[in-house]
Design a protein around this nucleic acid. Structure first.
Lengths: 401, 401
DNA sequence: GCACTTTGGCAACAGCGTTGCGAAAGTAGA
DNA sequence: TCTACTTTCGCAACGCTGTTGCCAAAGTGC
């Protein structure tokens, strides 16, 4: 696994702003291999033929054969039957071998911890949920995360031998020489602004003790595997992107707060300081009511106030207007709604936001099509699954998911 | 020139949403060549040494030597003196040969036509301005554009032989076998929403006769060279990006209307239907005053109304709030202000917008740094220069500028 | 059973960046 | 002025990539 692709091989050391880097033959191979893996993943258990891979990648059939031969040797791909003949030799179908790699996704919420173990294709094969108080202090929370992650990994990747706490820190010993299960790493998603690049929390609203906490490095040291942290909305958007949403879309999350995850051209847009997606504190009413952030007229404040007084259509309308602002600015394909408040009464929200966007499109021009609005699928696990994708993504050529 | 890089070689035919494509050796060479050319362009007349190129690209010095040797053979690069020695053989400095390629940029405004001819490095070597009425009908306007473009090209690329109109359509014969000047194509920037991919106008506010006009194909047929069309704000943003603004930024244009051009990670973000950057009709006041678009409370309406009543600080504040919404959503590095209205009284606008953003940042957190606000440089030609970059960009590895 | 179509691997090949090495072009010191 | 050293940079051989030409394998249709 480790040599399948050289990680982000070929990336030049310097370039902070990720300007551009030269591509050598190693990077070329990594890219094409990841591309083929990605198509295999997308095809799912149904599989995909070599010639179809060639068409989709633009590579020659022979090149695809070479790549898939290597993947089969490494155990990442396998043959899976054949298609019906069209007058000649039938195409052999290839599929991803999901068990060849694993990733852990952690959804660290204000009052709950959800840990999932997924295979290469993103399918969840293990899950744990425990109650937890984010305000209980960094040490306690990190301890709980380490214990639960190790628990899931020990149980499902190491044959379930032995007990719990004493194996803490051993999670990383998976990448053995033999066909041992390989753990790519752990992705952690949590609320609030944070520095995705350095893995440091800025602040978690309501819990000042987390300010500046180096969560990624702490967890990586104690778990012994690579760790990536990200905002919960970004993880959710990433999870939805892998679950089938293509192109560019925004995931709007309405729960205790209002935030967004942006997927542009298939990958999460985080912005320069990885703070993008601050949707809730968009001002839509000049000199409006005071928001918790200190500003006036934020969508979040207006939306939550409407919900507090039982005015769901009003909340939906405000949300729709902010969504239309976003859609006009970025010209995206789709809006997805999610979060506890949406889940409580989904229909009026979808309807209300849709209505605003249709009106908006009508004013833009006769042949203008409104951006479709849908409920985010995937249920309560989507954030944790997306967190796992933070590790799985690079295998399939996605920069950070 | 034509064989320097195979254009966007290697791009698979199908993939509408530009998903991902396989990379073959030809594409690899194109990429690395474009990368080196881009660094040569950035270095300007001062030049850059081979070893520096190697460091910046991550390629080995020998690979850079091969690439630059090819570029020198093709006349795109040349030696330009040497640096001071640091104890051994001094580094040879290479520079771009700007005269090896040309592009035309056209700024088609409501009442004026500006045509520039630029060299590879973006420097303007010829310029024409004529008054023109966008409402005079498509045929008349297109005729004027063709005449002026041909005029500039004939005068400066073909030795200025002969007259004007009869050579219309000959502009494309430049790419001769000998060292004849090579015209890459013509970029056209104009106001109003349009389809960048297909080169078709949606509508130009106030001029319904342009609805659905296939401007790109019409011009390409009559000029005989590749033509690319884009919104004026996108062209301006592109021009500013080449003029030195790095990273991600938004260009906010306040003139007869209010629009934005978004540069994310060095390239223009246009969105799925190339309609991104609709900044002016962002709603910032629920149920506010009616806007020309039919909606209520758009920034554009509020901003222009404030200006109409002489309240520049008020206009700046409203603009600042909308800019803060944008900056929070995308997490960009920089905001640039431009357009006639800004140019009339720049200081209060920069000050007003800056103030709003600083207040916003202060509320976000103590160590939060506000997004800097600056006046867009480049003067009145920046849109036309950016339009030329629509053709120059691909030479340097930029997808569409 | 034969002709035909289609798949996909083997072998030779061209072209990319890489490595090893040496000539070229300077500086620093005797 | 000569020698030793440093640094740049091109030539040649190399490994590895995707590509091309060719042919065996595995089906269908008559």
């Amino acid at each position: 696994m480790n040599r399948t692709n050289g990680g982000t091989a070929g990336r030049t050391a310097g370039g902070a702003a990720g300007v551009t880097a030269g591509v050598n033959l190693l990077a070329l191979r990594s890219h094409n291999t990841a591309l083929v893996l990605d198509l295999l993943r997308t095809a799912g258990p149904a599989g995909i033929s070599r010639l179809e891979l060639a068409e989709r990648t633009g590579l020659t059939p022979q090149a695809v054969s070479k790549i898939t031969a290597r993947l089969r040797e490494e155990g990442l791909a396998a043959e899976a039957g054949r298609r019906a003949s069209t007058g000649g030799k039938p195409r052999t179908v290839l599929r991803l071998v999901p068990e060849a790699g694993h990733a852990v996704g952690v959804h660290l919420d204000r009052d709950e911890l959800l840990v999932v173990l997924t295979e290469l294709d993103g399918r969840v094969v293990g899950e744990r949920t425990v109650w937890l108080d984010l305000g209980a202090g960094a040490e306690a929370v990190v301890g709980t995360v380490v214990r639960e992650v190790d628990g899931v990994v020990d149980e499902l990747l190491k044959g379930g031998a032995g007990g719990g706490a004493e194996s803490a820190g051993d999670a990383g010993r998976a990448a053995g020489a033999r066909g041992a299960p390989t753990l790519l790493g752990v992705g952690v998603a949590l609320p609030g602004p944070l520095d995705h690049i350095h893995g440091v929390l800025h602040r978690v609203t309501g819990f000042p003790e987390w300010d500046g906490y180096p969560l990624r490095d702490t967890l990586a040291r104690r778990l012994g595997v690579p760790v990536v942290v990200d905002k919960d909305t970004n993880a959710a958007a990433l999870g939805l992107a892998v679950l089938g949403e293509r192109g560019s879309f925004a995931y709007l999350h309405l729960g205790t707060g209002l935030g967004a995850g942006l997927v542009i051209g298939g990958s999460v847009h985080r912005g320069t300081r990885t703070g993008a997606g601050e949707f809730g504190h968009q001002v839509v009413q000049l000199d409006g009511p005071l928001c918790s952030c200190g500003n006036r007229g934020c969508v979040e404040a207006l939306c939550l106030a409407a919900i507090d007084r039982g005015d769901v259509p009003g909340a939906a309308r405000v949300l729709g207007i902010a969504a239309a602002n976003l859609a006009g600015l970025l010209d995206i394909d789709l809006l997805l709604l999610g979060g506890r408040t949406i889940a409580a009464t989904p229909a009026p929200f979808v309807h209300g936001v849709t209505t605003v966007l249709i009106e908006h499109a009508r004013r833009e021009g006769a042949h203008e099509v409104a951006v479709p609005v849908r409920l985010a699928t995937g249920g309560t696990r989507v954030v944790a699954e997306g967190a796992a994708q933070l590790l799985l993504g690079p295998v399939f050529g996605r920069a950070d998911g």
